[in-house]
Structure formats: structure tokens, C-alpha cells
Simulated scan of single mutants.
Amino acid sequence: MTKKSLNTLHFEFKAEQLKEPIDIDFHFGVVGSGDMEVLIHPKKNSNKAEFKVVTPVTGFEHVWEKVLQKFVNESGVHDVLFEINDNNATPAVVSLRLYQSIGELAAAGKEGE
């Protein structure tokens, strides 16, 4: 019997137009059936968005790359590391969770002011 292990993917992107950098650690979501969690860590002066994706799914690196690149270009995130723990989320859910995570992060920052 072959054991199935998790697949770890790494991506780096530069946004076409940069927004304010992320400056606090943040956690959003829960790993569950068909869902994912996002951990956000600032990376000062990296001038790029890095992603570490841990997923049980193999063979979809090109899909992850397209979804993440689109997110970076649209959101303008940079100087940041996103750790994504995936449990079979669809590309639409991945995109939704990423946008929700930066939205919640922005709201949390405003509460702290």
C-alpha cells in the first residue's frame, strides 16, 4: 500500500502595482473538507509576494500559479509570505479565501488604530 503524502509548492511573484505592505502576522480560515487556511507573514524589503502551499493534490501546479499570480497582480501585495494549508479547495475558493484574508487583515489593522 502506498501512503499519500502532502505536496509542498513554492511560488514568488512581483505585483504590477504595489499597495501598502503587510506589516503584521495574520491567520485566516480553517483547514477542513474542501477548504483552506491562510497564514500571512510580513517579509520586509522582499518586494515580492511569496507563497508556500501545502496540499494533498498533485498535478495542479499550473493552476495554483495562475490563481496566485492573478491575486498578486490584482491585490498589489508584496513584502509578504503566504502559507496556504489546502484541503482540496477549488481555484474559486482559493481566490476567495485569499481576498478574504487580506480584507480581514485590513479590518484587524483598523481596529488596532
Score class of each variant (00 low, 15 high):
H27Y: 13
S101P: 08
N85R: 10
L98C: 03
E83R: 05
K19G: 14
P56T: 07
L96D: 14
H78S: 07
I24L: 04
P91I: 08
Q100H: 14
D35P: 01
V57E: 07
T55F: 01
K14P: 06
V80A: 00
M36V: 12
A108M: 04
G32V: 08
V67Q: 02
A108C: 03
G34M: 01
N85A: 10
F26D: 09
D35G: 04
L105Y: 15
F26I: 09
H27R: 10
V54Y: 02
K14T: 14
T55P: 02
P56G: 04
D86F: 00
Q100M: 09
S46H: 07
E37S: 15
T90N: 04
K48H: 10
H41P: 12
N88P: 07
K14R: 09
N73V: 12
K44S: 14
K48L: 07
I84H: 03
K66Q: 12
L105W: 13
G29F: 00
K19C: 12
G34K: 00
S33C: 01
F26S: 09
I102K: 00
V54E: 13
F82E: 10
N47K: 06
Y99Q: 11
Y99R: 06
D23I: 15
E20G: 09
S101G: 05
N73I: 11
K48E: 12
S33M: 05
P56D: 07
A89K: 01
G29K: 00
G34Q: 05
D35L: 00
E74H: 06
D35C: 00
Q17K: 12
E12S: 15
S95F: 08
K110F: 10
L68G: 08
S101T: 13
M36W: 02
G76H: 05
G59L: 02
W64G: 04
P42H: 03
E12I: 14
W64T: 10
A89G: 13
E65L: 01
V30K: 07
N47L: 11
N87F: 07
H78G: 03
H10V: 10
G29P: 02
W64S: 06
H62G: 05
D23Q: 15
V30L: 05
I40L: 00
